[in-house]
Design a protein around this nucleic acid. Structure first.
Length: 966
DNA sequence: GAGTTTGAAACT
DNA sequence: CAGTTTCAAACTC
């Protein structure tokens, strides 16, 4: 089953994978894939993506054109993103070329590079020896099927080639790295170039020796750089599989892909190698990341096993690969995240925020475009891809991040953006890290995630789960944070991004690695610490990754299951029985999810909605918008009869939100706000001058202060009180007086940095922060903040400028001013842009996952406004917290007015219309506005819309394009 | 840890 | 749409 599931949509949206998954496949996926593959035209998504200005733009930039055709054929199996195919070739080529060039790169890369090179060479050599490499390169097609076949059916093959497998795997990675490193000159996209590069590589060196050493070096390398390249490879292999499955793959594609694979895979393990790569890839829509992740894991394992003979190690790795197809996903996710982190790390190492220490590139440089292509390509991919992307926010995001990360050093522009998006949080972390703050930021991120989980239905928490390694954890957490922010509700993105990692187990957010740890991990990635850490986490029992469900009868495929409802895969901590909410059954999960959503579009939507106090004139912009956590309300309200809304039976109470008029509860005594008080609260708020984020009246003994400061005070004093919105942005604003548009309402935009630490001061004393409740609140706040940040980042991303501007820190608040909202049309045009951000673009999904944007894309986040307006119970506007926002809502093309979804309560939730505009990103679905930095050369694609879209995979289904289109 | 309570989700 | 059943979390002992 697992294997099949792995295959499913991801690898092969095409029939093969699907058929395999028969039980519960994503109907979407199949059609999508098929459409994309068999009938590209039919697959509007793919076509659109390609057609999209962005796509064309990108294509024009690079010679990859041939690939385009391929993309259709390719489509990532799972993801179905033809783009991937395109990407990989490009990337590979570049990577390869670059690989050769590495020396050029800054020392940071050098270290890894040197090692990589050697390894790479060795691997190459092996390939040559096997003689397959050349053949493979030349004739990828034949291989593709094999790979596919192998990946699905013959995991054992790996076992057959234990030795080679690991090496091969690494080899692949190395190559990839090379590609990444080479980022400067990415130009060579032509197949011929690729071949040449490969050939060169092969020729360049060759002595494969100690896999172990290689692993070490590679690990280091991986940590530092790589991810992009890896991503490419992974993707490639996967694609072939998918295609093969479909049988639609164009030879071209295969060829392109194969070269890599062939090169990567030693002859011996051709299959095995493929399997690995494929597994990773297949497991993920975002293959690359996956591959990295796997590689990382492998590396880890190998490291652990180093002492042991290679065979054992490789076998273990292989076994792992095979046995845990689900894990693979998880791993891949990790990898992705890791990639992002690695990027960050790399960037840090390089010292260039831009990530291009030595790579001065114009943001728009071809390389960038290439990068974009890779991303964009993916996005344009078929529905399945989109879905997957959406689903896998993390995937893309990670990939992106990864890709970018890898490239990051190279490219300032997109990479930066991507990095920014992804990294934005990351960067903050990085900065922190290096500054000593990193930990905080990271932890915050994780908290963020966790917070989401705990509070809202959203899922994020799990993200943290995964990793074996602290690194992973960190990455995961980060990714998760992104993911959470991004998509709470785009299932797949969410799942893949967040959930999968979870399987591996999350670390408690708390325990996430500190900076030192993180750094260490990067360096010592493979080393034993991982296990220990993991144990710790487990021991702590805080695996935030999952909800710890205990489902007995629902198989965790119903909303009864907290994990499922949150868009999280069940993890070890769960005591569920017959659980299908696992990566292995991704298809089933997705399908089920869809079914549920079909019944209730908002089923996975965030339950907690931000109520827009008053004239929603400016949520972000104007003074008016003072929405704060406190203003949150349960979307549907509760129906408590006996608990008086004072126990966790009450969803409102559980979410730390007050009851609203929408609640049907009886004898409400909700501590956070009672039914009848809600309106009062509003009034108070209004009176208070909006300073406030006053919640409903509380017994807290807090007193509202009419003055602006009152808000803070209240927050300070209120035990439960939601953490006030962070000032970080404000601060930044203060300093710069940046554009108020986005940041003016500093409160609303908490800086990532502000995170817990920052927040605590504002909102509460440290002691309070320590308080579980407060902690949660903080987390939540952080999450929100992160979302906001991400959003900002996204904007930055769009710019292609350095992350710095948008950095969570608000380092460059100035940028904000530059932001401008573009008409939807533009935004829509961006379908490709969405592509840019795999996660985002499509309108997809992050379903629960955070509809928001895929981590990858944090950028996605941008697109999606974190706040979504909806009609309140009272008829008042609500803002759906990003985390809470259902992907569907975001992505789903809706009537301009609103999507009216009847909630169980019978209340309708609609997306805000008019106001949506206010939030540039706000529902992409609605407005499809683009946020563009004036200064930035506009990439056609990047737009909030795309971002928002990307959030929900589901949305993608519904109509990513449509929404985007307008 | 087992059993009960509770309210959401699912079903009719 | 309302009522009932099912379910799993929350809670109690």
């Amino acid at each position: 089953m697992q294997e099949e599931h792995h295959h499913f949509c991801h690898r092969t949206s095409s029939g093969v994978g699907v058929s395999d998954n028969a039980p519960s496949e994503f109907s979407e996926c199949k059609p999508t894939t098929n459409d994309s593959i068999s009938s590209p035209p039919s697959s509007s998504d793919l076509l659109e993506g390609q057609e999209s200005p962005v796509f064309s733009y990108i294509s024009n930039l690079s010679p990859i054109k041939p690939d385009k055709a391929a993309p259709i054929a390719q489509g990532f199996p799972g993801i179905n993103s033809p783009p991937l195919v395109i990407r990989s070739p490009q990337i590979n080529i570049n990577s390869q070329q670059t690989f050769l060039r590495r020396p050029q790169f800054p020392g940071s890369s050098d270290v890894g590079l040197s090692g990589q090179d050697e390894n790479f060479e060795a691997s190459v050599t092996v390939a040559e020896e096997s003689g397959k490499s050349s053949s493979h390169l030349s004739s990828g097609l034949g291989i593709c099927p094999d790979k596919t076949f192998v990946s699905k059916n013959s995991p054992p093959e790996k076992a057959s080639c234990p030795q080679g497998s690991a090496d091969d795997y690494w080899t692949e990675i190395v190559i990839m790295d090379g590609g990444d490193s080479s980022s400067e000159n990415l130009t060579p996209k032509n197949p011929g170039d690729i071949f040449q590069s490969q050939t060169d590589l092969l020729d360049s060196k060759g002595s494969v020796d100690n896999s172990e050493e290689k692993y070490d070096n590679r690990k280091d390398e991986m940590n530092m750089e790589t991810s992009p390249a890896i991503l490419v490879q992974a993707e490639e292999p996967v694609e072939p599989n998918e295609k093969s499955g479909d049988g639609n793959m164009p030879p071209d594609i295969c060829t392109k892909i194969e070269p890599k694979t062939s090169v990567d895979h030693a002859p011996d393990n051709h299959h095995g190698g493929h399997l690995k790569a494929e597994d990773a890839g297949s497991g993920h829509k975002f293959v690359g990341s996956t591959s990295q992740l796997e590689s990382l894991q492998i590396a880890e394992e190998c490291g652990s096993c180093r002492e042991n003979a290679r065979g054992p190690c490789t076998q273990a790795v292989e076994n792992k690969m095979q046995d845990h197809s689900p894990k693979v996903h998880g791993i891949s996710r990790r990898l992705q995240f890791e990639d992002a982190q690695s990027k960050i790390m790399a960037n840090i190492a390089f010292g260039n925020s831009s990530g291009s220490a030595g790579y001065p590139r114009s943001p728009v440089s071809p390389s960038d475009s290439e990068v974009l292509e890779s991303t964009s390509l993916k996005k344009p991919a078929s529905r399945c891809n989109r879905l997957l992307e959406n689903m896998t926010l993390p995937k893309f995001s990670p990939q992106n991040s990864g890709a970018y990360s890898v490239k990051a050093p190279k490219r300032s522009g997109i990479d930066l953006h991507l990095n920014t998006s992804v990294n934005s949080s990351m960067k903050s972390a990085e900065r922190d890290t290096f500054d000593g703050q990193g930990k905080k930021s990271i932890s915050i991120m994780s908290h963020h995630l966790h917070k989401n989980c705990s509070i809202s239905s959203n899922v994020v928490e799990d993200v943290s789960v995964s990793s074996d390694d602290s690194r992973h954890d960190t990455h995961a957490s980060i990714a998760a944070s992104f993911a959470t922010s991004l998509s709470p509700y785009g299932m797949k993105p969410f799942y893949e991004a967040v959930l999968k990692p979870i399987e591996f187990q999350a670390y408690p957010s708390h325990k996430r690695m500190s900076n030192s740890e993180t750094s260490d991990n990067y360096e010592d990635f493979g080393q034993s610490s991982l296990k220990n850490k993991r144990k710790k986490t487990l021991d702590d029992g805080e695996s935030y990754g999952c909800k710890h469900c205990n489902c007995k009868k629902t198989k965790c495929l119903k909303l009864y299951c907290d994990c499922f409802a949150a868009g999280i895969y069940c993890a070890e901590p769960c005591a569920c029985e017959g659980c299908f909410n696992r990566p292995e059954y991704e298809d089933t999960v997705f399908e089920t999810r869809q079914q549920i959503e079909s019944r209730n579009a908002l089923a996975f939507a965030p339950k907690i909605v931000q109520h827009i106090p008053e004239p929603p004139t400016n949520i972000f912009l104007g003074d008016g918008g003072h929405f704060t956590p406190s203003s949150k309300r349960h979307k549907r309200g509760c129906s408590c009869k006996k608990s008086k809304c004072l126990k966790k039976y009450c969803e409102c109470y559980q979410a730390d939100v007050g009851c609203s008029d929408g609640c049907r509860c009886e004898a409400c005594e909700n501590f956070y706000g009672q039914k009848g008080d809600y309106g009062k609260t509003k009034v108070l708020v209004s009176k208070s001058d909006s300073s406030g984020t006053l919640d409903s009246s509380f017994d807290m003994g807090l007193e509202m202060v009419a003055s602006k400061d009152g808000l803070l005070q209240k927050e300070l004093y209120n035990p439960h009180n939601m953490i006030p919105l962070t000032p970080s942005f404000q601060c930044s604003n203060h300093g710069k007086g940046g554009s108020k548009a986005w940041f003016s309402s500093g409160r609303h935009l908490p800086s990532p940095e502000s995170a817990i630490t920052s927040i605590a001061p504002y909102g509460m004393s440290l002691g309070q922060a320590t308080n579980p409740d407060n902690h949660n609140m903080i987390l939540e706040t952080n999450r929100e903040i992160m979302d906001l940040v991400s959003f900002n980042q996204d904007l930055g991303y769009a710019n292609g400028h350095s992350v710095n501007q948008f950095s969570p820190r608000c380092d460059a608040p100035s940028n904000t001013g530059h932001l401008t909202a573009l008409p939807n049309s533009q935004g829509c045009a961006n379908n490709s842009s969405a592509q840019m951000f795999p996660g985002n673009c499509h309108v997809s999904s992050t379903s629960s996952l955070r509809w928001r944007s895929s981590p990858i894309t944090t950028s996605t986040n941008f697109g999606e406004s974190k706040l979504h307006e909806a009609v309140d119970f009272d008829g008042g506007p609500y803002r759906i917290m990003d985390d809470d926002i259902p992907e569907i809502l975001k992505e789903t093309p809706r009537p301009p007015n609103a999507v009216n979804v009847s909630s169980p309560n019978k209340k309708r939730v609609s997306l805000p219309h008019g106001r949506g505009t206010e939030l540039g990103s706000s529902s992409s679905a609605r407005n499809c506005r683009k946020l563009v930095f004036q200064g930035v050369p506009s990439f056609p694609p990047f737009t909030p819309c795309g971002v928002s879209r990307g959030d929900s995979s589901q949305n993608a289904k519904y109509s990513q394009n449509s929404s985007c289109s307008n």
